[in-house]
Amino acid sequence: MKRRRQVWESGLKFLGLVVITVLTLFPLYWMINVSLLPEKEVIRSIPHLFPSPAVSTFKSYVEILAKYEVPRYLLNSIVIVLSASVITLFSSFAVAYALAKYRFRLRNFTQYFIIWLVTLPWVVYVLPIFIIASRLGLLDSHILMILLYGFSGIPLFSWFALPYLYSFPNELIDAGRLDGCSEWGIVLRIVIPALRNVLIALFILRFVWAYNDLLYSLSFTFHRAKMIMPALLEFPGYLDIPFAKMAAGGFLAVLPIIIIVIVFQKYVVSGLVGQTFK
């Protein structure tokens, strides 16, 4: 009796495993599948469930690479987001360190203020920034996007970094002081090396989020500094919806992030999850 129940149980677990696997991987699979079909073969009521060699083609990729400057948009996104993530990381790390390790007036107030800033939607800044940037002639420039993505993440990432710095042992810092380290020496030689993994995790997280963001990139870049996410939205025309090209562009756009997430998976999980339950 007991054994039969165990068989049932492991059977159900296996089934659940299969369902989860299929559901998580199917969207990416479908994107690749559609991107490899000619447009004609996508528009049919019985869809091709896999890109059979008889019909599949790389034509969509060739076309979007030739016609839409996808490589340039990708490069823009990567350059902007990479520089911005460095800015976010060090600024928010500094803010969190100061909040966790120094006593000063307005300390509690600053923490509440930061959390309130985190809850405020990005969209409320878009229009004023748009007006100011256009007066300054900065719209559609790389430097504007680097600064915006660099600075916009500071409240959220200070908040993320805070628990790690609170739990950082004060004894290590005091030992550094006793050894004659300057306040800066402590940060550079003791805290940063000890929290290296946390910094990597937060950096990756910031990179992924800024790269995937649509709101700022859509509102402030149009041609010169155009980023990949708003560029994706240009494929659907007014009359035709080129499904295969949309899928191909989407796949090229998500590929860098998929690779990062697979390679640095350990860091992503710890960066996101660690702080929640500290």
């Binding site: 998580t24 991987l25 969207p27 049919r44 869809p47 649509l214 708003p230 494929f235 989407g250 998500v254």
Partner: peptide, 30 residues
């Protein structure tokens, strides 16, 4: 399972939106 849970998370919401336009199409959607 842990290693594949993050794959949908990695796909940007923009690309996800386009993908669902394809998948939810009334005539041709999967």
């Amino acid at each position: 399972v842990k290693s594949i849970l993050l794959i949908p998370w990695a796909i940007s919401l923009t690309a996800w939106g386009l993908l669902l336009q394809i998948a939810l199409s009334q005539q041709f959607g999967v």
